[in-house]
């Protein structure tokens, strides 16, 4: 039931981030409007502003080897559908919804059988550990994996994650704290004393 229902992430326009500054809103919205008018540079700027966020969110859901292509897909979809975005200030949430939908689609579609996928046996120890850490993040509950991916992989700070994703700073902090605790458990590390 709740735990197994497909998530409905295909919202036309996600609620506006409550903690995004008006200046950011205004700049993002102006870029969206300019991109709608045919300004390639404006869309390129949106890509630069939000590419890291989309990459981090994707990485929380799909294999690393697929992420770059899927990030490009997400922005292509956004480019095609930009006119359907009713509120330019809601661009960030709208883009996140596209990214999560694309990640869901990836898992729904048939993929090459395992023998055609990357063989992990030849990795050097560092690579192996990094892959294990990433796999551990991807196995966390959904609430934690995206925030941890954005923080630990993409290097975004908690306030940046809150501003970009629309979550409250308090929620991001809680997600980071609890997610990190679970990650330590999964990686066999003991939590520091609090």
């Amino acid at each position: 039931m709740v735990a197994t229902l497909d998530r409905v992430l295909l919202i036309r326009e996600a609620p506006m981030p409550a903690n995004h500054s008006m200046g950011d809103f205004s700049q993002d919205a102006q870029l969206v409007l300019a991109a709608r008018g045919g300004d390639r540079a404006a869309f390129g700027e949106l890509y630069e502003r939000f590419g890291r966020m989309v990459h981090g969110v994707m990485l929380a859901h799909v294999p690393y080897a697929e992420v770059d292509d899927l990030v490009q897909d997400v922005f292509l979809i956004a480019l095609r559908r930009l006119d359907s975005l009713r509120e330019p200030v809601a661009f960030a949430g709208w883009l996140l919804a596209i990214a999560r939908n694309r990640a869901n689609d990836f898992h729904r579609r048939p993929r090459p059988s395992e023998e055609f996928q990357e063989v992990s046996g030849n990795k050097d120890p560092d690579e192996h550990e990094a892959q294990a850490a990433l796999a551990a993040i991807q196995s966390l509950p959904e609430a934690y994996r995206e925030t941890l991916s954005l923080r630990l992989v993409e290097g975004m700070t908690g306030p940046e994650i809150a501003a970009r994703t629309g979550l409250t700073p308090a929620s991001v902090r809680v997600n980071l704290h609890r997610g990190m605790k679970q990650l330590r458990e999964k990686l066999g590390k003991s939590a520091p004393h609090e």
Partner: peptide, 22 residues
Amino acid sequence: QLGRFQYTQPKFEFPVAATSPL
């Protein structure tokens, strides 16, 4: 460890003009 997976693609590859709304 995880930095190796970080985002490194700074430019968007626009589709060919015929299929792009821009």
